[in-house]
Amino acid sequence: MTETEILGWAGTVTAVVLGLPQLVRLARTRNVEGLSLPAWQAFLAVNLGWTAHGIAIGQASQVVASALSLLSTVPILYLMSRQLKRSFLLTLAPGLGLAALMVLIDQLFGSGAYGAVAIIPAVLANAGQSVALVRDRHVDGVSVLFLILAVVNQVIWLAWALLVPDTGTIIAATTTGIIALFNLAWYTARVLGLPPIPSRQAARRSPQRE
């Protein structure tokens, strides 16, 4: 087995198990504090988009990783929609629409263009989680193991993409990995006592409540 294949299947394993710690925590606690719904909607688009991209470039490990990741992403969205009292189908709609756009661009313009566009949902997913970690009053609903695996997964896929090489994956893995590392660091700071940074609107309302 080549180095590329080893890294590809290592990325597959980490991607498949990536969402499981968060799914288990959410199913056990029903606590969504610190979780971002837009982030998980974007993760849905990422899973679907990269499944299609893996098929397009003939990389089985990428297909398996992204497709099996749906087994945690979709249930997480279902549980979040239940807790937030939202329609499950409407909750899925933004992710499905964004995934369709990603696939269309990949087919029409190729891997480089796809990689540039694929940054958008990847950044939305991780940056959306960043906002929740920064602003939410509590982060008890977030699984630290999920955040750790998110960093590890992007490092593996970056190494894989450099060996293949695949421009789309290099661009996306680098950008996403930086944000995933920020999320882990900020979560750690919150657990250690760093207070939330409320939005301006929330800050304006706070004195009125007091």
Rank of each mutant, 00 (worst) to 15 (best):
M1F: 00
E3I: 01
E5S: 12
L7A: 01
L7G: 01
A10K: 01
T12P: 00
V13C: 02
V13Q: 00
T14M: 01
T14I: 11
V17K: 07
G19H: 04
G19V: 03
L20P: 00
P21K: 05
Q22V: 06
L23M: 06
V24F: 04
V24S: 00
V24L: 14
R25C: 02
A27S: 10
R28E: 01
R28Q: 11
R30Q: 14
N31Y: 10
N31R: 14
V32I: 12
E33K: 15
S36D: 10
A39N: 04
A39P: 04
W40F: 15
Q41P: 09
A42V: 11
A42C: 09
A42F: 02
F43H: 14
V46F: 13
V46D: 01
G49M: 09
T51A: 05
G54C: 09
G54W: 02
A56Q: 12
Q59T: 10
A60Q: 13
A60E: 12
Q62V: 15
Q62Y: 12
V64A: 13
S66R: 11
S66G: 09
S69G: 15
S69F: 09
L70A: 13
L71R: 09
L71W: 00
S72F: 10
S72A: 14
S72P: 08
V74T: 08
M80S: 08
S81K: 04
S81T: 09
S81Q: 09
Q83I: 13
Q83Y: 03
L84S: 03
L84Y: 06
S87M: 04
L90H: 12
L92F: 10
L92R: 11
A93P: 07
L96H: 06
L96W: 03
A99C: 08
M102T: 06
V103F: 05
Q107K: 15
Q107E: 14
L108T: 15
F109N: 12
F109H: 15
S111G: 10
I119A: 06
P121D: 06
A122Y: 01
V123K: 03
L124W: 13
L124G: 08
L124V: 12
A127T: 11
A127Y: 15
A132G: 08
V134T: 13
D136N: 12
H138N: 12
V139C: 08
D140N: 12
V142N: 03
L145Y: 14
L145W: 01
L145F: 08
F146D: 04
L147N: 13
L149T: 08
Q154G: 06
Q154L: 13
I156Y: 07
W157C: 04
L162Y: 09
L162W: 15
L163T: 14
V164S: 12
I170H: 06
A173K: 04
A173G: 00
A173L: 01
I178Y: 06
I179D: 07
A185S: 10
A185W: 12
A185L: 15
W186Q: 09
W186P: 07
Y187T: 09
A189Y: 08
A189T: 02
R190N: 05
R190E: 07
V191W: 02
L192Y: 05
L192D: 02
G193M: 12
L194G: 01
L194M: 15
P195N: 13
I197A: 10
S199P: 02
R204M: 13
S206V: 07
P207R: 05
Q208T: 07
R209A: 11
E210C: 03
E210H: 14
